[in-house]
Design a protein around this nucleic acid. Structure first.
Lengths: 206, 206
DNA sequence: TTGCAAACCAAGCGCTTGCTAGGCTAGGTT
DNA sequence: AACCTAGCCTAGCAAGCGCTTGGTTTGCAA
């Protein structure tokens, strides 16, 4: 299902084909930006990672920042598409909340982890204009969270303010990319459940 | 009380007197490193912030990284001293846990927020040796958290694994420095309580 | 008054950085 | 056969970077 989402996005022209020269560049850029940071990654690093010389990068992208922005836009588009598709299969508020948590965890620790880590950590290196463009995409994304959290509040599933809770969860989840290893003892599902239990009250026994 | 902690640390030589040239430099460095990031802050920025020329910095510190490290060491020392002093006044596990949360929130959003934000966000720019030195300090700090969380688990105050819970709380709390404004609607106490409620089960009514 | 160390300045070196200009080549179109 | 364009290379520029060196000023102690 995830594969299907990805493929249709490529055909729509939203994502760049990862097989193409541009696509390979973005993949490598995401990896390097995450690993070394945007500023510590030189255009020479980027170029040699895809087997070309530094000057040739600027045939594909206007400047270094445009590469950063492209990585971010791809990551967000992919994550949102993924999230919509998973939400469509959940019909309880708790299930939908769990799906959000699982998606955000996977966005950071799965195949698209590099790109999403860059979205979060290299944000400040975009120019003002670039930040606004990305912000517009992210607000749409945050809206999905808030809608479900407001619903959860109505159903007394959560007690905290949705806006505050969202920010706390955001911090907790995004930080996992610094410590969580999906091949370790703690499974992906256990972590999802632990975070879900932070957010909601335990089910009141009859 | 906080003032007292600070003063005695200065007299012990653990902290640099903030009035001195070195101290003013560290204060400004923390501010700039937080605001612009370590790499984007040039030695010329640092120098002009304290009213000297760039070359004169190296009379006080061997190189730029030494300034970063000094900012971090000061921040951690201060935060730990503060934490110990507050923990000494709490005698219930829940009270102690709340104190930890409050201290960590205040460390990031109060007077020493700049230095602590640098500890968290500019970590990677230390050399390997520098990272290990700071790590040794931080492990001591984390131990204080873990001891109390293990105790809370014994008392069935929390259900999650202490280690995992600590990391989730760490992410949630440190992220507050990106959004929390202590002059806003949400008070410092409310935020502390909200986070505490995430960690612990609600008190079971009799 | 002299001596001395801490603090700072003036000038610039060596290096890396993002980016540019102009030319070459292979593959497809007309 | 002539042309075009996407993709890459070669060579290097201008700017900014951390840091060094040698000299000057300042404040305090003897």
């Amino acid at each position: 299902m995830t594969q299907g989402v990805e493929k249709s996005l490529i055909e729509q022209g939203v994502l760049v084909d990862p097989q193409s020269a541009r696509g390979r560049l973005l993949t490598q850029a995401a990896r390097l930006f995450r690993q070394k940071g945007y500023q510590s990654t030189t255009v020479r690093d980027l170029a040699s990672a895809v087997g070309i010389l530094s000057g040739s990068l600027f045939h594909h992208y206007q400047n270094k920042e445009a590469i950063l922005k492209a990585v971010m836009v791809e990551g967000i588009h992919h994550t949102m598409a993924r999230m919509r598709s998973e939400l469509a299969e959940e019909h309880t508020t708790q299930g939908r909340l769990r799906a959000l948590i699982a998606c955000e965890l996977d966005a950071l620790n799965g195949d698209w982890g590099d790109a999403m880590a860059v979205v979060i950590n290299e944000w400040r290196f975009l120019s003002d204009g670039g930040q606004q463009d990305i912000l517009a995409l992210r607000e749409e994304y945050e809206q999905m969270w808030l809608e479900i959290l407001y619903q959860a509040r109505k159903e007394r599933l959560i007690t905290a303010s949705p806006k505050v809770l969202r920010k706390l969860l955001y911090g907790a989840i995004t930080w996992t990319d610094k410590w969580f290893d999906s091949r370790g003892k703690l499974s992906y599902q256990e972590l999802t459940d632990t975070i879900l239990q932070l957010a909601i009250k335990p089910a009141s026994d009859p």
